[in-house]
């Protein structure tokens, strides 16, 4: 089907990008392996979508696609939460730095004035 071809092209592109990132040392070997396996699994499901139905029936979900969507949503929620936590930490860290700078300047200026 056309969608399979489109998705496979995208997957090949994604794997190439991951390989390039590893070559440029932007990501680690571990990340490279994880992402490559991930894309291969996606590719597998794209080529043989019936496999999702097998798994789905096994766990009690009607359609393979539904199962993929349920899992994807769970993963996305989890990732979003992780991002929020990270963001919160970054904001607090920025405040720490801004405060340090503000206070050290504040001390200096007053000393120069007096």
């Amino acid at each position: 089907m056309l969608i399979q071809i489109i998705l496979l092209i995208f997957i090949i592109y994604a794997v190439l990008k991951v390989a390039l990132r590893y070559k440029d040392k932007v990501i680690s070997l571990q990340e490279f392996v994880v992402w490559t396996i991930f894309w291969f699994m996606v590719g597998f499901v794209v080529i043989l979508p019936e496999t999702t139905s097998l798994v789905a029936n096994f766990v009690g979900v009607g359609r393979g696609v539904d199962l993929v969507i349920y899992i994807s949503i769970l993963i996305l929620f989890y990732l979003s939460f992780r991002i929020l936590v990270r963001l919160d930490k970054i904001e607090k860290d920025v405040t720490k730095v801004v405060r340090k700078i503000a206070l050290s300047k504040g001390e200096k200026e007053k000393d120069e004035q007096s």
């Binding site: 405040t95 801004v98 405060r99 503000a102 504040g106 200026e109 007053k110």
Partner: peptide, 10 residues
């Protein structure tokens, strides 16, 4: 006495 934050923090 004036203390300045470099960027807005709240």
């Amino acid at each position: 006495y004036l203390i300045n934050h470099l960027v807005n923090r709240g």
